[in-house]
Amino acid sequence: MNTIAILKTVSLTKKYSSISARGYAVQDLSFEVNKGEVFGFLGRNGAGKTTTIKMICGLLLPTSGNAYINGCETVDPNSRRNLGYLPEQPYFYEYLTPRETIHFYCKLKGLNVKEREQEWLRLSGLLGLESIADIRLKNFSKGMRQKIGFAIALVGNPDLLILDEPMSGLDPVGRKHIRELIQQQKELGKTIFFSSHVLSDVEQLCDRVGVLSRGKLVATGHIKDVLQQDIRQVEVVFKDVAVSLMPFLKQRGTLLRTWENYVQFQFDTILTANQAIAECIHNGAVVIELTPQKETLEDYFMRMQIIEEQQKKKGEIYYSRVEE
């Protein structure tokens, strides 16, 4: 199958003029996002996600390397004909109303009067802006602002959406709403590139992820390949375990805590957990809760950091790539 990279970076590098600890905010970043994909761009605070996105959107000039949208270099404004961008925190012209805002961005996208009116109807319907159409934005809450920001990104129905932490600062309902919007755009065949440091958002939405650590891309691929998604440990809560059974349990697993007549153990494999459970039930105890432990993004970042430091000691540059 021949897929086209709608977004591509080649050795993209950014060094801010003000001196920062590691020098480069983004270093030698090369990746491709294919048409129709949802790509999650992961990294801890300060990893360089926003810097990368700003280079792609033409806000920052790369120190070296290039980014391309549909093969067009991002220093050329024409590359942004088919791009929608939601900044980390959306900022607006506070003196405008939602209706005026959408019309303004429509003009910048080059739509004519009729198309602008249609676009307003489409977007206000999609995001439920009708009731607030003529209120100035300075009065709006965070959730409403994110909606307006999303509407701006969708102006002109672009094929590529770049969203910088689209769900940060929202309540669960707001997060769900944004998630549904992303899902909807995906079903329409749009390509979505979004940054996040929250694993659950990424897991539910992304086809592929790229992980950024200290300005470098440390992994790309399917999320299951990047994270060790096999079950690593199992935590079990028992009730009414006989005191005589405790040495047996302590032999198989680790006692995490005890309270009232409950105990919580951690077992290294499913098998040992099962053996322990069988023995306990046989002796009149009850299993209250069983939680398999998978690697979280936080664990992953910790693991990456440890590996990176080890490699640094050896004087090697760490780089791993998990291809699909």
Binding site: L59, R80, R81, L83, Y85, Y91, Y105, G110
Partner: peptide, 8 residues
């Protein structure tokens, strides 16, 4: 931000 991200 959102202005420069337009084809302008």
């Amino acid at each position: 931000y959102t202005i420069i991200a337009q084809p302008l």
